[in-house]
Design a protein around this nucleic acid. Structure first.
Lengths: 121, 121
DNA sequence: AGCTTAGTTCAATAAGTCTTGAACATCCGC
DNA sequence: GCGGATGTTCAAGACTTATTGAACTAAGCT
């Protein structure tokens, strides 16, 4: 039981760029980039961005393009950036995009939500 | 008589990435990146990539996203990369993408065609 | 076992993308 | 001014994308 991910050599630039050429998905990777002290995030944490159904869709797109890794953890899905794979294949691309993505307003919203949850714990 | 281009501060990352998330358009910017000794190329030179009509479409997309500049020269349209504008706004993004784009097979085809034309001159 | 939490699947819909051919406009050289 | 070269516009078609709600599965708690 694990989700299909492209091998590193099956990650193609047009697909990666198309996957990142969307506000919602750019926000997702912005969030991931700003929290990668811990091992990624769980889909639910992106809730402020859009509906649950739609998140499944966008996370699927990113996974199929090879931008993120999704690991099943019980009922949850732990999402992390495929930094190494991407940087090997397209050096600098992800990093330079992240530099902008981490400053998106929607990313702030998600991160504020995370802090609120942490405070409540 | 000149075509509409977005101001530098109206160039947005999702639009740029969406514009570059396509084989044909990635090939176009690959060609531009490999010939920017002279001042850009003319639409007709991209002919090996696809039909004339379709080129108008793709060049329009790149222009509207702020990736290229299109200057009218008589009946021709001279196309060039907006390197400076893009690099100011999203440092490293264009360069890192170009590094891959210049090696696309379709770019080779276009460049071989250019040499043949030059030889015939 | 029953309830809750987390996410998926499905079908539908609205909107956008890519591609094409036919007809058109515009400039340039002769 | 005519003819060729360069590109545009338009309408149509096939396809893809983004979004949604309802119904579902699967794991974890108590």
């Amino acid at each position: 039981m694990s989700l299909p991910h492209p091998d590193p050599d099956q990650i193609f630039l047009p697909n990666v760029l198309a996957a990142l050429g969307d506000e919602t998905r750019l926000a997702i990777i912005g969030c991931l980039a700003r929290t990668e002290a811990a091992e990624g995030l769980v889909c639910g944490q992106f809730a402020p961005l859009t509906s649950k159904t739609n998140l499944t869709y966008h996370v699927g797109k990113l996974r199929e393009a090879g931008v993120i890794n999704v690991r099943i953890e019980g009922t949850k899905r732990r999402v992390s950036l495929r930094r190494e794979d991407l940087d090997n294949r397209f050096p600098g691309v992800l990093d330079s995009i992240i530099a902008t993505a981490i400053n998106l307003p929607s990313v702030e919203t998600v991160l504020l939500d995370l802090e609120t949850q942490n405070a409540a714990t």
